[in-house]
Simulated scan of single mutants.
Amino acid sequence: MSERAKKKLKMQFGFIIIFIFIIGVQLIVKNYFVNHPPAWTTGLYISCFIIFCILGLLTYLDLKKQEQFVTIGQIVDVKKDTNIIIVKGLGRGHRKILIKDSHILSMMQPDQRIEITRLKYTGMITRKVYRDQELQL
């Protein structure tokens, strides 16, 4: 998996943990300062908070180990001024893909094939191969 994909997964994990932490703090603080709840609810809140943290961790691990799909797409259009190619065959409709290698971009022509590796759930591109040469992400 590329560095960009790893960085995005770490960011998603961080957002999951922050979200769960904020919800847990709001529930605990609201009930302690307003209602003075019975003792059994404290255990309930803490166990729910731990369960949410475990579910967030499982979601992160599932995203990290998700399958990658290799798709062969057909180049529809090459926009050299914006370093973007439009590819058909990556799901519904056409998809714009940014290419950082400008010398390879100048060689690309419509109706040629490009191999794209994407993640299953997020659809994020992890690898691009054009004429047996891997492109930068």
Rank of each mutant, 00 (worst) to 15 (best):
L105G: 01
A5F: 03
R95S: 15
H94I: 02
I72M: 08
Q68L: 06
I75K: 06
L137C: 00
I54W: 14
I72Q: 15
M11D: 04
K128H: 10
L58T: 06
I97E: 10
F33W: 10
G24V: 00
R127M: 13
L58N: 10
D77C: 01
G89T: 06
L135T: 11
Q74C: 07
D101W: 05
S2N: 15
Q133F: 15
C48L: 14
T71N: 10
Q136P: 06
I51M: 12
E3Y: 13
L58A: 08
G93T: 01
D81E: 15
I97V: 14
M124L: 02
R92L: 14
L135M: 09
K128A: 10
V70N: 04
K65C: 07
F49K: 09
Y121R: 05
M11K: 11
T122D: 00
Y45G: 08
L57D: 02
F49S: 14
V78D: 09
F15H: 05
L57T: 04
V76N: 13
L90W: 02
Q12W: 05
R127S: 14
F52L: 15
I84E: 10
K128M: 14
L44K: 09
S106K: 14
I50F: 13
Q136C: 06
K128D: 14
V70F: 01
I85N: 08
G89Y: 08
H36V: 03
P38I: 00
I50Q: 05
P110Y: 07
T59S: 12
R131I: 07
G123H: 01
L63E: 11
I54M: 12
M108H: 01
N35A: 06
D111T: 06
M1G: 15
H94V: 04
E115A: 00
F21K: 00
S47C: 10
L105P: 05
L61P: 02
T42Q: 12
N35K: 09
G24P: 00
T71V: 11
I114W: 01
L9A: 07
I16R: 08
M107G: 02
I22F: 10
H36D: 14
D132P: 01
Q133G: 02
E3P: 04
M11F: 13
Q26K: 04
K10Y: 10
